[in-house]
């Protein structure tokens, strides 16, 4: 079973993302964290390989996404786990900062269910497909 960590404070966003993930023809479970502190604690504390992927929002309470990225860079367990930023901001500044903090990918939050499906498919197809075993396969 593959598990994805989702760092997102907005329950609606979580719903859109998990919905898109559920629509994948794969068995993927989602652990979510609702603020930066919680995320750092959970992600750094997790055993290596717990999460195949981390989806991270930038605008989250307590410690923002950039802060989370910086902290993860220091932790050994999550160092090789891809961190994909999924942010509502399209500002080039934010994108720049996210890259500098070491994210593996940056997606602006889509504004339609289709958009979400496409985004998740892209992410999964790019970063996870080697790891996944499709139920049908």
């Amino acid at each position: 079973m593959t598990t994805i960590a989702l760092v997102e404070d907005d329950p609606d966003e979580r719903l859109f993302i998990t919905r898109a993930i559920d629509q994948l023809p794969l068995e993927v479970s989602v652990d979510y964290f609702t603020d930066g502190e919680e995320a750092i604690e959970g992600l750094l504390g997790a055993e290596k390989g717990t999460y195949a992927l981390i989806l991270l929002d930038l605008k989250i309470p307590k410690i923002d996404g950039i802060g989370v990225l910086n902290s993860l860079g220091n932790g050994k367990s999550s160092r090789y786990t891809p961190v994909i930023v999924c942010s509502g901001s399209k500002s080039s500044q934010d994108v720049q900062r996210a890259w500098e903090a070491g994210c593996s990918g940056y997606f602006a939050k889509p504004d339609s269910p289709t958009g979400y499906r496409e985004m998740i498919q892209t992410i999964v197809g790019y970063w996870l497909s080697p790891l996944l075993v499709s139920p049908e396969a």
Binding site: D10, D12, E13, R19, G88, D111, S112, P113, T114
Partner: peptide
């Protein structure tokens, strides 16, 4: 504009979910 867009996007999303699915 940034903060207004966030809930707006959610509205769009939900209405699209309703419309499409």
């Amino acid at each position: 504009s940034h903060d207004l867009k966030q809930p707006l996007r959610i509205i769009t999303n939900y209405s699209d979910i309703l419309l499409e699915e």
